[in-house]
């Protein structure tokens, strides 16, 4: 058979995109922000990231080995989940927090729903909400041994103060390990856009809706400093570029994506302005993820000629 010409129908040109390549691109795009976080907060934050990634991989491998499923350890999805979770944690958390978070993310949110492609909400975000609700004390402690200021820029803003927007853009501020540098996250996001790993619709509509919401209801009008601080602060950038664009939990159609991003922008605005905590991106993403099945239902494209038929 080898000597025969291989006759096959189209398509003849195939892309090499697989889950693994896409996930590696995401990891690569996250690297600048992660590296900056480690540079800013020191070697301990690297331990947090390593623990989160390690336990995500370990949980994935152990569960799949226990139930006899084909291992998806090498497709990189657990790696991305662990990395995203780690980057969304405060830099000085005790190490059992990323451990527990990763186990929850992979076991309860991803594998028990059927593994990759089957999870209802973003595992990293769900795990962060889980940790945030359970360990409010540890999860809101942003100050470290070296006397770094405790309050995050968003908390300062919420209490009526002003934040140093330039520092927030470059990342010389306080916050979670991977969310502080807007610049590094934007670089990663643009890399993903250029590589066509993600689509521009969700991040742009999300950020736009959120900005509009803040202008309308933020109480400070179109104050550019306040607006910029809200956009650069907290988990908004990492959420918009890396989490909201998750293939599994975002809608399929473009119309659906616009709707999803609108929801995200409004929910984030509501949680940030009127919620109990200063940040709200993780809750917004988890809530909007739960709405995705409904969004898909109303945005499903109609086949050609469907209009003429009367549906009983």
């Amino acid at each position: 058979m080898r000597e025969l010409w291989n006759v096959s129908s189209s398509p003849h040109v195939r892309a090499w995109d697989g889950t693994r390549n896409l996930m590696l691109d995401v990891v690569l795009a996250l690297m600048p922000a992660a590296a900056f976080g480690i540079y800013r907060f020191g070697i301990y934050s690297l331990c947090v990231l390593v623990t989160a990634v390690g336990f995500a991989l370990l949980t994935e491998y152990t569960y799949e080995a226990c139930v006899g499923k084909e291992s998806t350890l090498w497709d990189g999805s657990a790696l991305v989940t662990g990395l995203l979770l780690g980057m969304n944690l405060p830099p000085f958390v005790p190490l059992w927090i990323p451990m527990l978070g990763s186990i929850f993310a992979i076991l309860a949110v991803k594998q028990l729903f059927g593994g990759i492609g089957q999870n209802v909400v973003n595992p990293a975000m769900a795990a962060r909400c889980f940790l945030l609700i359970s360990f409010a004390d540890q999860m809101n402690r942003y100050s470290g041994a070296d006397g770094m200021s405790g309050a995050t820029p968003l908390e300062i803003l919420k209490n009526g103060g002003t934040a140093d927007t330039a520092a927030m853009f470059t990342g010389f501020t306080t916050g979670s390990i991977g969310e502080i540098s807007t610049l590094a996250l934007l670089a990663g996001g643009i890399y993903l856009l250029v590589k066509r790993v993600i689509d521009w619709v969700i991040p742009i509509v999300y950020l736009g809706t959120f900005a509009l919401f803040i202008v309308l209801f933020g109480g400070r009008g179109a104050d550019p400093g306040y607006l910029a601080a809200q956009l650069c602060g907290g988990g908004l950038m990492i959420g918009a570029w890396f989490m909201a664009t998750d293939y599994t939990t975002s809608p399929v159609t473009e119309k659906g994506r616009v709707l999803y991003a609108l929801f995200l922008g409004i929910l984030t605005g509501i949680f940030r302005l009127w919620g109990a905590s200063a940040g709200g991106v993780s809750y917004a993403i988890v809530t909007a993820d739960l709405l995705v099945p409904l969004i898909e239902k109303i945005t499903i494209p109609k086949p050609f000629g469907w209009e003429g038929q009367k549906d009983g």
């Binding site: 059992w96 527990l100 309860a108 889980f130 609700i133 359970s134 360990f135």
Partner: peptide
Amino acid sequence: YEPVSIFVLAPGAFL
């Protein structure tokens, strides 16, 4: 032991 307080809140019941 550090209590995982989400379990005594509403989401914990579902979990």
